[in-house]
C-alpha cells in the first residue's frame, strides 16, 4: 500500500471558488487520532492542530469522534508495530496561503497522536449530497418492491327488501 504517498496533498480539479473576500485556497485535513487517547484529551489535540494552522481562516471544524476502522491500521512503534482497529476521526477545513501547507504537513506527520491524516485541496462550499444518487441497478439495492395491499371491498349494508328486489330483477 502506497499510504505515505497518498497522504501528500492530492490536487482536486475544481478550482476553489471564494464568495467572500478571502481568496486563499481552501484545504481540508482529515485525521485519525490514536484510540489510546483519553476522551477528554482529544480536545487538546484538536487545539494543537488548530494552533498549527496559524492565521488560517477556519471554515468548518468537526470534533473527532471514535469510530471503528474498516481495517486494522498498522504503524511502526517503539520496538513493535502498533495496530489500531479504531480511532477518533475528525476533520478541519480552512483557507490558508499555499506556502504554509508544507510546513503544516510536516508538523502533522511529526505528531505521534495522529495515526493517519489526509490533506486535500477542496472547495469552500459544503459538499453535501444534493439528492439521492441515481442508481440504475436494483440488484444491489436489495429492497424488494412490495405489492400494495389489496383494499378490501367493503360490503355496503343492504336491507332485506332491496335484496329481494334486486334478486327479483335478476330472475325476471
Amino acid at each position: 500500500m502506497a499510504d505515505e504517498s497518498r497522504s501528500a496533498q492530492a490536487e482536486q480539479s475544481q478550482a476553489s471558488s471564494t464568495p467572500s473576500g478571502d481568496s486563499r485556497p481552501v484545504y481540508e485535513i482529515g485525521y485519525h487520532l490514536v484510540p489510546t487517547l483519553a476522551e477528554d484529551k482529544v480536545q487538546a489535540e484538536v487545539a494543537k492542530i488548530r494552533k498549527m494552522l496559524g492565521n488560517a481562516e477556519i471554515i468548518t471544524d468537526e470534533t473527532p469522534r471514535k469510530m471503528t476502522l474498516s481495517y486494522v491500521v498498522e504503524r511502526p512503534g517503539a520496538g513493535r508495530r502498533e495496530k489500531y482497529g479504531e480511532a477518533y476521526f475528525g476533520f478541519i477545513k480552512f483557507a490558508i496561503d499555499k506556502e504554509h501547507i508544507n510546513e503544516i504537513e510536516q508538523k502533522l506527520r511529526a505528531m505521534r497522536e495522529v495515526l493517519r491524516y489526509l490533506l486535500i485541496q477542496t472547495v469552500r462550499e459544503e459538499i453535501a449530497p444534493t439528492r439521492r444518487a441515481v442508481f440504475t441497478s436494483d440488484r444491489l439495492e436489495g429492497e424488494t418492491i412490495k405489492k400494495p395491499a389489496a383494499v378490501e371491498e367493503k360490503a355496503a349494508e343492504v336491507s332485506e327488501e332491496e335484496l329481494d328486489k334486486s334478486i327479483d330483477a335478476i330472475v325476471a
Binding site: 485519525h32 474498516s70 481495517y71 491500521v73 480511532a87 476521526f89 489526509l118
Partner: peptide, 19 residues
C-alpha cells in the same frame, strides 16, 4: 466517475471503507 474514484480511494486510505 473520476471524482468518484478519487473519493473512494481517499476513503479507503482513511479506513472509512475497506480496500
Amino acid at each position: 466517475q473520476r471524482n468518484l474514484a478519487e473519493a473512494v480511494k481517499r476513503a479507503r486510505f482513511m479506513a472509512l471503507i475497506p480496500y
